[in-house]
Write a protein that binds this DNA or RNA. Structure first.
Length: 292
DNA sequence: TACCAGGTAAAAA
DNA sequence: TTTTTACATGGT
């Protein structure tokens, strides 16, 4: 089963980037997700590094294969066109060397929206390391496993839990409420993301912000990371305020308004620009510059 | 030890 | 209306 993507796409580089955040350190690219009600492992390989063609090595047999390929295309951001952004970036002294070094790097999207939304809630206010540690406990207790890989719980796995079930994983009582409430909304169909794709960024941010526990930062974070809306930036984000300051303002931490101002010129790829800056910052920090 | 880390809603002023 | 506070864990 093959997926044709819009190139350039350096899949091994993109995979190394996501795995550099810890957790799994697998050589082989594998994604775990729910498909047709079962925890499922999907192995992915780029057939030829020079071509944007991925092969799904293992997959659920005969269950909506067409829909499955579409889903994988979303996860891999297969249809994201980097070249127009690169043309713009080459005119910028900061981004030019970065897009050259990381040519073909694409962000991956989480396999489902519930996972993304819960992840965003866990990452409110506390460090990413603390948030991950909490999430791992939630997944270990309420999720599933497939071939030693954890699968994030579904709304149905969470909706009927008690607050204490989640608090025991290290979540605050407030966040436990948000997550159980969210699970219930998704279970009942009251929150239906099918209609989200028709909405422009600003309207979708307003809609998501109307749910309890989801402020502007969280909504923007979900649009960028979860939905692949590459022009959106959660500019209030403490990490992004430092990141943009590092590259464009002599290292000082910027305000949200200053971040928005600096990034204005990168529309319609503001979020993608931030992703590349972050990739560079991270790889630089890790001393792992594998871009060559 | 204390403080900061990819915020938010609710209470207090 | 605007400002302040409580909240959870992990790293330094």
């Amino acid at each position: 089963m093959k997926i044709t993507c819009i190139g350039p796409y350096d899949f091994p580089l993109s995979w190394r980037f996501v795995t550099s955040f810890g957790g799994r350190a697998a050589e082989e690219a594998a994604i775990s997700l729910w498909w047709a009600g079962k925890p499922t492992l999907v192995r992915i390989e780029q057939i030829d590094r020079r071509q944007p063609l991925m092969e799904i090595k293992s997959r659920p047999r005969a269950v909506q294969p067409k829909r499955f390929v579409e889903h994988m295309e979303e996860i891999l951001n297969a249809h994201l066109a980097l070249e127009p952004f690169y043309r713009r970036a080459r005119k910028d002294p900061v981004l030019a060397p970065i897009v050259k070094a990381f040519r073909g790097l694409k962000p991956f999207r989480p396999p489902d929206l519930f996972q993304m939304m819960v992840t965003a809630i866990t990452e409110q206010q506390i460090s990413l390391a603390a948030a991950r540690s909490i999430r791992e406990r939630v997944v270990a207790r309420f999720g599933a496993m497939v071939d030693d890989l954890p699968v994030f719980p579904r709304p149905a796995d969470i909706a009927d839990l008690s607050l204490n079930d989640l608090r025991e994983c290290g979540l605050s009582g407030r966040k436990a409420e948000y997550i159980i409430n969210l699970a219930g909304l998704m279970e009942s169909g009251e929150l239906d993301a099918e209609q989200w794709s028709a909405l422009p960024d600003d309207e979708l941010i307003s809609l998501i912000s109307s749910y309890r526990g989801f402020g502007q930062w969280t909504a923007e974070y979900i649009l960028l990371r979860g939905l692949g809306r590459m022009d959106v930036v959660p500019a209030a984000d403490i990490g992004i305020r430092k990141l943009i300051g590092f590259y464009f303002s002599e290292g000082k931490r910027l305000s949200e308004a200053e971040v928005r101002q600096v990034l204005e010129e990168w529309s319609p790829w503001r979020g993608l620009a931030v992703f590349y800056l972050f990739a560079d910052y991270r790889m630089r920090k890790m001393g792992l510059d594998q871009a060559q």
